[in-house]
């Protein structure tokens, strides 16, 4: 499993039992079954589809299936240009996701408005103006490897969460 510290899993000899910490078990379950809302808004979406395809297959790392509904998803991948008309929809779908929820901004457009930063009357200058973003993936568009790298960064972030305040 990704990022497993061997210290944390203890096998009891002679019995089908392992011991570990609750925190690690919860975080590991979360990090390795991230269901995605694939918010493909423009050209970056093509690269995202490719990442989910056979060649780079993101299920290998535990991001699993793209969820058919935001109500059973954990992470939203905003891939592309968020227009002002789309902004209420992005926000609404984010609000429908159950917590804990994470957002990845994929591509220059979702990070800052990208090529549309000047003279544009219709583009939201970065999805972080609407919803909190966990991982930013630069590129125009980012390669599938970069998207997977972003996902692994997100998993690291989840593994570092503390259950006790």
């Amino acid at each position: 499993m990704n990022g497993v510290d061997n210290e944390l899993i203890k096998k009891i000899p002679g019995a089908p039992v392992i011991m570990t910490s609750v925190e690690w078990a919860i975080n590991a379950s979360r990090a390795n079954s991230l269901w995605t809302v694939t918010f493909g808004l423009r050209c970056c979406a093509i690269e995202m589809m490719h990442t989910g395809g056979t060649k780079t297959d993101w299920s290998r790392f535990g991001f699993e299936v793209p969820a058919a509904s935001p109500r059973r998803a954990d992470v939203m991948v905003v891939a592309g240009t968020v227009s002002k008309k789309m902004a209420p929809v992005v926000k609404r779908l984010y609000e429908q996701m159950p917590g804990p929820k994470y957002v990845m901004a994929m591509g220059a457009c979702a990070i800052s408005g990208g090529p549309f930063i000047y003279d544009s009357y219709s583009v939201v200058m970065g999805v972080d103006k609407l919803i909190p973003v966990d991982v930013y993936i630069p590129g125009c568009p980012p390669r599938p490897e970069a998207l997977i790298d972003g996902f692994i960064k997100l998993q690291k972030k989840i593994m570092a969460q503390k259950i006790r305040k």
């Binding site: 000047y118 003279d119 544009s120 009357y121």
Partner: peptide
């Protein structure tokens, strides 16, 4: 046209 948060080049 100038409106909202539009930045000129």
């Amino acid at each position: 046209f100038s409106g909202g948060d539009m930045k000129r080049m």
